[in-house]
């Protein structure tokens, strides 16, 4: 595979095929953990690590797995990576692990991961699969961080925990509460759609 197509595989996750904005995958963690930018980033990177790991392993062993048991085999591989990340984060990043809570084990059912395993890693080479996993994962992390930053800015009056004058004392609380997650993401997707349409036209 040439380096041009590899670059394309890598960058597609950010806007063109962004898992959140365009494919609407992985909505639960997207809405659930983005009450602050740092939580969004943490969740995005944890998902990236799982995606990268599972894509690499599946690309390596794809020929050893009979077709009929493909899905259960993929699920075990993904669930193992999720548990490894879960335990590692609990040991070395306890505050972040506590914040993300239930959504860490739930990475297992994030449709992005099984989707990439099935659609990409089980048919492509090791290098391409790794690049795909990294690109898609970072695209997911980018979307979560952006949404987290917007919600934190409006709802808590801070950016990455740094207070913003005026807004910090008068935050629009609704944005860090559950309804705000839906509303902020809705408008964010509308903006992204408009931008994509303009770029495509």
């Amino acid at each position: 595979m040439s380096s041009v197509t590899l670059t394309r595989e890598f960058t597609k996750g950010f806007l063109r095929e962004n898992p959140v904005f365009v494919l609407l995958l992985g909505m639960c963690p997207t809405l659930g953990v983005t009450s602050s930018a740092i939580n969004g980033l943490g969740m995005g990177l944890a998902t990236t690590a799982v995606l990268l790991g599972s894509n690499i392993v599946i690309a390596v062993v794809k020929d050893l797995i009979p077709d009929k048991v493909r899905i259960p085999a993929f699920i075990v591989i993904i669930a193992s990576f999720v548990t490894i990340i879960d335990l590692t984060m609990a040991a070395f990043l306890p505050p972040l692990h506590e914040q993300l809570g239930l959504f860490i084990p739930l990475i297992v059912v994030n449709c992005i991961i099984l989707g990439r395993a099935e659609a990409f890693a089980s048919r492509n080479t090791l290098v391409a699969s790794a690049v795909d996993g990294l690109g898609m994962g970072l695209g997911f992390a980018f979307a979560l961080t952006l949404l987290g930053a917007i919600r934190e800015f409006l709802g808590a009056g801070a950016i990455f925990g740094l207070p913003v004058p005026f807004l910090f004392d008068n935050p629009i609380l609704i944005f860090i509460m559950p309804p705000g997650a839906f509303i902020a993401l809705g408008f964010l997707i509308a903006v992204v759609n408009t931008l994509r349409e303009k770029a495509g036209a």
């Binding site: 609407l24 609704i174 509460m177 559950p178 309804p179 705000g180 997650a181 839906f182 509303i183 993401l185 809705g186 408008f187 997707i189 509308a190 903006v191 759609n193 408009t194």
Partner: peptide, 21 residues
């Protein structure tokens, strides 16, 4: 136009969540 599809669904869900609040 920009709100059609997912955006308006999400905003609607947000208002529903607000009501459940």
């Amino acid at each position: 136009r920009a709100m059609r599809g997912a955006p308006i669904s999400l905003v609607t869900a947000g208002l529903l969540a607000l009501a459940f609040g």
